[in-house]
Design a protein around this nucleic acid. Structure first.
Lengths: 251, 251
DNA sequence: CGAGTCATTGACTAGTGTCAATGAGTGTGG
DNA sequence: CCACACTCATTGACACTAGTCAATGACTCG
């Protein structure tokens, strides 16, 4: 799947690129692919250069923590490639997955003192790394950026409410349909419309996102496959019957 | 329950009070009870007066809509007394309740073009009503207010994530324990610590908040009552065994 | 090639949902 | 003031979805 290369496999030459011009103007030798929809797209002129000076481009291998729940928050991140799992380990041993951050997503929106949840890479990930203190001060000098982050937080809140509605009263089939279609929608901005949806997360991650068990996720995938709605593989699903999937999701 | 009068029964003489000084300084002839923790508490001097000019104090009887999901958003509200249910009717006929707004809460945080959900009063409610356009312009002139609303939105996002964790993997007993303790915590800022928690919402509302049915809510209340954890009445519960309730909630 | 991880499948169980009847509380009109 | 209708909550019987436990299969990595 060539259009997903960008998402899943950042350029290995990344490390060689001049770090002073990676984040908001130039990346991998060309224009930054995510700037159009990223948090920094409201900045102009000198402010962009200033943000660039602060940005430290960073490369994470798969299954690496960007930050841990409860730890003091020193950093905020802007994801430029790859997929990050946002989750929290609860006191009863269960893990709740809140979502999967994609390129263009900003981690650390509320600028909290301590991270409320953990962020771990599922794929190779490249991200612009900012010192939280520097970023906070920069934000208070730049009301347009503050306004932008406010809107992004509002969007995240709306997404969380969608998530609540999915968890609140749906059966396993409907939950899974919502999950696939939600992922599909969010991938549009980076890779365009897809019929094959990559699943870089494990069945356990999907189960923890939907409030199900891994067995139920597996069985439900199998059933949707048998019924000709999806073609399920370990790391991707192909949408065979979009109308029926949409009927199941029925938001 | 005298300390709950403020929450549930606003002063009937409310309408008679000089409307020019109701919202942020003076209410019911005395200092505004919610200003300390409300969105406007970051404003000083002239800005407070300006906000007051914009605020239209409004009185809503029980079971009245403040706004409907999907409707164009003309207003934002700051709740000064009473309880408001935030919910959304889904396409399958189910109703998802996202939460219950209490005095000091601000409705319309993202300043969206259209309301994403409905807001209906459960009790008598008094609220400062603002024209959305005026408020938006005022906010862009007042970075401290923008910053404050940003923080409030981040707090709402954290609450939504709590809600997700509650819905994600708990049984009915744990969900109900979380609900009661969550309500208790949020009531602290207005009425102080309580052992008797008022329940102005119906069993159906609780069920729709927790992703359960009304029957399961009822049965679970009955069991917690039999086991000596709660004393359940139609419109309130008394916490008899707080430690056991906290064990059940086990966040 | 073997160990290890992750996903699938099956058998059984437990917790909720569904359907239906009863009970309690509230408001209205005679 | 009481009777009635109406709404909401409780309780019971039963069904069914999803969870639990266990075994097998598929894939990856050294």
């Amino acid at each position: 799947m060539p259009p997903l290369d960008f998402l899943l496999n950042p350029d290995p030459r990344f490390d060689a690129v001049d770090p002073r011009h990676i984040c908001c103007h130039v990346m991998n030798g060309s224009r930054c692919e995510i700037r159009d929809f990223s948090m920094c797209n409201v900045l102009r002129g000198k402010a962009v250069d200033e943000l660039e000076q602060m940005a430290r481009p960073t490369n994470f291998p798969p299954r690496t923590p960007l930050h841990e729940q409860g730890a003091a928050a020193h950093s905020v991140f802007n994801i430029t490639a790859g997929v990050v799992r946002l989750s929290k380990l609860l006191s009863d041993g269960r893990r709740q997955v809140f979502g999967f951050a994609l390129p263009g997503d900003f981690l650390g929106l509320g600028l909290p003192e301590r991270h409320a949840y953990s962020a771990d890479t599922l794929t190779h990930v490249t991200a612009c790394h900012f010192d939280r203190g520097h970023f906070k001060r920069f934000m208070s000098r730049e009301p347009t950026l503050l306004r932008r982050l406010y809107d992004l937080t509002s969007r995240d809140l709306a997404m969380a409410q969608e998530h609540i509605a999915i968890l609140g009263g749906r059966n396993a089939e409907e939950k899974l349909a919502c999950f696939i279609l939600g992922l599909r929608t969010r991938l549009v901005r980076t890779v365009g419309v897809l019929t094959t949806i990559p699943l870089p997360m494990s069945r356990q991650d999907i189960a923890d996102y939907l409030g199900l068990t891994i067995e139920t996720v597996s069985r439900t995938f199998t059933r949707l496959d048998r019924e000709g709605v999806l073609e399920v593989a370990r790391d991707r699903v192909r949408i065979v019957d979009l109308p029926r999937l949409e009927t199941l999701a029925a938001t």
